[in-house]
Each structure stands twice: as C-alpha cells, then as structure tokens.
Design a protein around this nucleic acid. Sequence first.
DNA 1: ATAATAGTGTCTATTAGACAATATCCT
DNA 2: AGGATATTGTCTAATAGACACTATTAT
Lengths: 242, 242
Amino acid sequence: MGAPQERRARSLRERDFLSRYRPRDYPPVAVTVDVVVLTVIDARLCVLLVRRGEPPFLGDLALPGGFVRDESLEAAAVRELAEETGLPSDRVYLAQVQAFGDPARDPRMRVVSIGFVALVRPDLAPMVRAGGDASAARWLEVASARRRKLAFDHRAILDAALEHVRERIERSAVAASLVGATFTIPELRASYALVAGRELDPGNFRRRFRRLLEDRVVEPAPGKRITSSKPASVYRFRRPAA
Amino acid sequence: MGAPQERRARSLRERDFLSRYRPRDYPPVAVTVDVVVLTVIDARLCVLLVRRGEPPFLGDLALPGGFVRDESLEAAAVRELAEETGLPSDRVYLAQVQAFGDPARDPRMRVVSIGFVALVRPDLAPMVRAGGDASAARWLEVASARRRKLAFDHRAILDAALEHVRERIERSAVAASLVGATFTIPELRASYALVAGRELDPGNFRRRFRRLLEDRVVEPAPGKRITSSKPASVYRFRRPAA
DNA sequence: ATAATAGTGTCTATTAGACAATATCCT
DNA sequence: AGGATATTGTCTAATAGACACTATTAT
C-alpha cells in the first residue's frame, strides 16, 4: 500500500492501453456460460449433465455450457439451454447466479464462466431425454450429482445455483417453473419441499398458498386431479404480462 | 429449435476447438472488474467514482475498475480497491454482485465486467481522499451519482450493487463495514437507514440490536459517546475468526 | 369399512411496526 | 430548567411452526 499513486498510474496506463484497441496484446481470456438446469422427475430434484468428450476431464460429467458469442450473457444461456434441451426459453425460469473466475479452473487457458440456473417444468422434462443422443444430456438426481466428480469447478457452480433457488423460492414465484402447467397444492408443496430439502407441513403450506391466491398470482383451473385417494383441486399460475 | 442435434454437434465442435488451445482464433473478449465502493460521509451514503481520462466516455464519471490479470476475480477486485483507495482489504466488506456482458456495453470491443460491491468504514474514508490526485477518485453522494451520466453501464452496476446490500443488510452483519471501529446504537441505526433509504424506529431497532448482542455478534465497548444531548453506549462488532 | 390424502382449524412463539413514556445528559 | 436524544415498554398485526381434526375419495 506504500505507493497508491504509482498503482493508479499503472491502472490509467491500462485504460489507455485498451483505448488503443489492440485486443490481441493482452493475455487471452475466454468467457463461457454454464447452466444448471433443474427439474423434477419422479419426485426427485434432477440436474442436467453432459459427458465430456475431450480432455481435460474427458469422460467426466459436466454442466452444459459453452462460449459466449456476439450476444448478451443471458442470450448465451438461453441458447445453450435450447441446444441442450430443445426447449423454448419461455416458461423456463432462468437467472444469473454468479461469475466463476479462478485462474486454475480450466487448465488450458483463462476461462471466466458465468453460472446460470434454469428451472424446467417437469411435464416438459421428458422432451429433453427424447431429443438426446448417446453422448448428450441426461438427468441426474442432484444429491447423487453432488457426490460425483464433476468437470472443472462445476460442483461449486451447482452448489451456488441450488443456494440461489433456495433463497428465492420462498419469496418469489420461482416454483412456478417446477410444476406442470396446472398443479394441485400438494404437488406444489412437493416441489417446494424438494428444493428446500425438507418436509413442509400441509396445513401451513396451504395457508401460504391462500395468500398466493388472494394476491392473484395463482388462480383455480377447471377439473380435479384424480389420485389414489381424495382428488385435489387444480390451479395454475396466472401469466404475467412478461 | 428444429435440429437440436446439429446445434449440439456445433457445441461439441466448440469444445474441441478450445481443447486445441488456439485462443487467438475466436473473437477477443476482455474481462474486467468494476467495484462499487460505498461509505458514509456526513450522514450521506457515498460512492467512489473516477473521471475517465480517455474515450469513450471521456470526462464522464465511472466506477473504479480494470482488467482481471492472472488472479481470481475477487483478487482483482481487492487489487482495484487497494489501487483506488489505498485501503487494505481486511475490514472492507467485498462481495461479487453480478456479471455484466451486454455486447454493446463497451463500444470498442467485447468486455464482460464482473461487478463487485465494497463497503468502507466511514472512519477510513478520509484516507482515500488524502491519497488522491486531481484526476483520481472522489466520493459522490449515491443519490446524486444515480442522477448523473455514468460511463458504460455503470449506472446499472451501481443499482445492482445497492440492491445487493439492501437485500443483505437485514440478515447479515454487512453493516459492520459502514460504521467505525466502535459505534453507538443510533449510529448503527443511521447507517441501516441510509442503506434502506428510509427512517428506522429507534425503539424497534434497539430490539433488533439486542438480539445481535445476545447472539454475540456485537459486544459492549468501554466508554460513552458524548453528543450534544444524552450520551449513548458504545459497542463494537466481535471480530470473527475470518 | 378402511386407508389415504385433501383440506380446516387452533394454539403458540416470533417478529415487525407504530407509538407512548421515561431516563439521562448537555446547555 | 429545558431541549434533545437515549432507552424502555406496550399494543397490534402478520407470519411460521406444530399439530389435532374433519372431509372425501379409491379400494
């Protein structure tokens, strides 16, 4: 800290450097996006993983992702999502989680990756498997994925994404993307429970749901869901303008 | 969405591309950090801004920031903070906010910037001004900074940083970095109020503070703060192991 | 009828907010 | 003494959690 002026001067030189626009003159960096795609399959929280076909981490499981092209970061994430799942981006919750930039996270060169999290409605999840070939994307239960060895720092990205949705599911309509187009209260409660990682009291959850109903974020849908016991009423999220 | 297989193949080709390590072969990207440095001066929430000395946005105010070198993103932010403020990184709250990567955010080339927020203890803030020269960093009240024209998308970064601390100040000890080494309850309340952007009830705040005391996150400090009326008890945050 | 699950109601504890009342110090 | 502010206390409303209870359907 002895000579802040000199440091500042160096910083200004850098800015000037950039202003001369010789982008090849500094150490190369690549920017990628990695997407933590989550859904619910058979009452299990699952994440979409691909198997790496090249070194490093050849054969390891990894998050779907790729280079950012001439597009925004969000657009890159949407594109990767479409490439890996074939799903359109509407009706998919997608949010930036955090940037990961450890210099050693990729052994080949400096790669800064922007982590995203996406929630896919479970009724659309089967479409994903259908479109995939052998080396392509597959769903893995989150708990087991976290125990596996994942490529790069994808384990950290996965954890950050899970924390992201956990923090937000209580205070937003994030969970809308983890149930089908229509759903019953117990179904929604099951999704919340999967993300929260614990059981939720049916009565208390129903009380919270009543508030969602009053606030017009959900509304009744026609019909009843037939199960092996008492059928439940069906609801749907009201489509906001967005 | 018609041919996901082809898209996936292209994606795999990209990975292979990267594995051959010819980093000059794809469009150049630069990665920078921009730091929203906040403090309290004269009971005003202030942000540290620098004046740009080169185009684009020559003469405009901008957040301090610069290229990420062979270091982690956090390290780059710490370094920029030290360069611009001369302050050591301990006792400064620093957190990543979000990545900003709009293709048009820098007219010269593709620059992805990782936004950080830093909170500087107000008793250290004067040191910053002392070390600065004419073209260097200066404190500006946040409200007025938000009304100004800022370089690049720094207005959006500033807003995101403010939202970040607003969300966290209630549920963490973030505010520890916005009061001096020792402080009174009214002083802490004033900092909270500045960040929250509204008045806080003294009685209710005191009740919350009592919980902080019971949880051992703060502890009494010797002495009293003499003001123009009734003196207040002095406290300090207990230093955690970190 | 019985099992199972949807759905209702109740009790308690915690917390936030509004606000009144008191205590203590400086001038 | 008087003004200002710290400090304490009270009341109410909102919310979460635990849990007992009732209703309705499939089998």
